[in-house]
Design a protein around this nucleic acid. Structure first.
Length: 426
RNA sequence: GGAGAGGUGGCUGAGUGGUCGAAAGCGUCGGUUUGCUAAACCGAUGUACGGGUUAAACCGUACCGCAGGUUCGAAUCCUGUCCUCUCCGCCA
């Protein structure tokens, strides 16, 4: 959420940003309503002040004078209530508009309406490998080596669910442990977060659980949702808090399951593990001072690169275009890793995403910091980044490390955790 | 899941309808005293929004977990809700 005063004072900037983001919002209407609300608010405050005066007078008045005064005070309070109601009504309308306004965009973010405008920034250490045989995709590999059971997942739960089996289980745990080692050595506090969160927190992070195209599973008869990412729980962890500036930056990583309905996603590249309703993810999250957040985004992106470089997976880094940023992000970098089994001759597919959300989420979640020795508080900046999404990482490992005999070489970085050099063949 | 107790400022904790944004203590900051430290003493010390100022000062409104209600008036009474603690039950 953008600051309301900022919107009113920077109408053309906000409008232009909405246009770049491909979001239609009636900013003029918001400004008009806000002007009305301010007037109504002042009037309400003034009425309330007089009513308070009366209340005090009555306390000190002689008993025989009280009834007359009460009558007047009642009338005044009724006026105040009316004025307040008008104010509240305006507030609701303003908020409804305000919540749909996306964050500002980084001046260097490529401007464009969708992912076609995304800009490739660089590539990883490893180039895509030349196969001297026709590489299989992870679904075939998973089946041949008895590593992934999609049929069983469908039978028990439905399409988009799966069982990991045998060495795939070790591989998944090894990837988590490998990534955790890197993040802990970088000073992240590791956590395992709840997989459910209050709707209020989801909204604060920028999700709309009850929207028409929602990605979110809601638990019936509760205000809880299954989280689509630990970004939700990690951000929510500090909601409503005031943090001492000396504690910043706070770097957390969280392991959680991620649940996504993938409504409207049918027909897209959905084969196998690429787009599933449940997966596990290690997520990075940071709360920073405003002046630190841009550097933190580079740092997060650098860590994502390091993880995939050390895994030996080829990838490219993409600077996300304004129209593809989503509401909360000010700037976003994605890693797209090489998936040899994807498409006809292999394709890059998104494996991580890191965003600087500046104060957009902090304002909604009311996460502030206080500078020592200074009056007042400011909103913190929040950043999130995928350290590793296990389902998609699994695709890249299986497909990139497959061998002619049908076996999978275990990446060197994972061998200590997997306890094997090779998986299969069977 | 059942029964009970409770949520007050950075912390401890008083406050059961009016003069309470809130006693007292601790902490923190500034000052005095002091050869230094300690102690003592004096003063200051919440947040948000709005007004005001070059900037302050200052003024107004709201906030005693959160949301409602009663009342001229609510930290205080009522309802709901969230959270914490104790006991019981169940359970990995």
């Amino acid at each position: 959420m953008l600051d309301r005063k900022f919107i009113v004072e920077n109408v053309s900037l906000v409008k232009q940003n909405c246009a770049h983001r491909g979001v239609t919002v009636d900013i003029d209407r918001l400004v008009e309503l806000e002007t009305q609300r301010r007037a109504a608010d002042q009037q309400t405050q003034e009425l309330n002040r007089s009513a308070n005066e009366f209340a005090q007078k009555i306390g000190k008045a002689k008993p025989e004078e009280r009834d007359a005064l009460k009558e007047q005070a009642r009338a005044l309070r009724a006026q105040k209530d009316q004025s307040q109601a008008a104010c509240d009504e305006l507030e609701q309308q303003i908020l409804a508009i305000q919540l749909t306004i996306p964050n500002l965009s980084h001046p260097q973010a490529p401007i464009g309406s969708d992912d076609k405008a995304n800009l490739e920034l660089r590539r990883g250490e490893h180039a895509p490998r030349k196969f001297d045989f026709k590489p299989l995709d992870h679904v075939e590999l998973g089946e041949k080596l008895d590593l992934i059971d999609f049929e069983g997942g469908a039978r028990t739960t439905g399409h988009g669910f799966y069982f990991l089996k045998n060495e795939a289980v070790l591989l998944e745990l090894a990837l988590q442990r490998f990534v955790l080692g890197i993040l802990m050595s970088e000073g992240f506090t590791p956590t395992i977060t709840p997989d459910l969160a209050r709707e209020e927190i989801l909204r604060g992070i920028g999700f709309n659980p009850r929207g028409p195209e929602t990605q979110v599973y809601i638990v019936e008869n509760t205000d809880l949702c299954l989280v689509g990412t630990a970004e939700i729980t990690l951000g929510g962890l500090y909601s409503g808090m005031v943090i001492d500036d000396e504690q910043l930056p706070i770097k957390l990583c969280g392991i959680s399951h991620c649940y996504r309905t993938e409504a409207g996603a049918a027909g897209r590249a959905t084969r196998g593990l690429y787009r599933v309703h449940q997966f596990t993810k290690v997520e990075m999250f940071a709360f920073t001072l405003p002046e630190e957040s841009e550097a933190m985004l580079e740092y997060f992106c650098g860590l994502e690169c390091r993880i995939f470089d050390e895994l030996g997976i080829p990838y490219r880094v993409v600077d996300t275009a304004t129209g593809d940023l989503g509401g909360p992000a000010y700037r976003k970098f994605d890693l797209e890793a090489w998936m040899p089994g994807r498409g006809a001759e292999g394709e890059y597919g998104e494996v991580t995403s890191t965003s600087n959300c500046t104060d957009y989420q902090a304002r909604r979640l009311n996460i502030r910091y206080k500078k020592k020795g200074e009056k007042g508080t400011h909103f913190a900046h929040t950043l999130n980044g995928t350290a590793i999404a296990l389902s998609r990482a699994m695709i890249t490992v299986l497909e990139n490390y497959q061998q002619a005999d049908g076996s999978i070489l275990v990446p060197a970085a994972l061998r200590p955790w997997v306890g094997l050099d090779v998986i299969g063949p069977r």
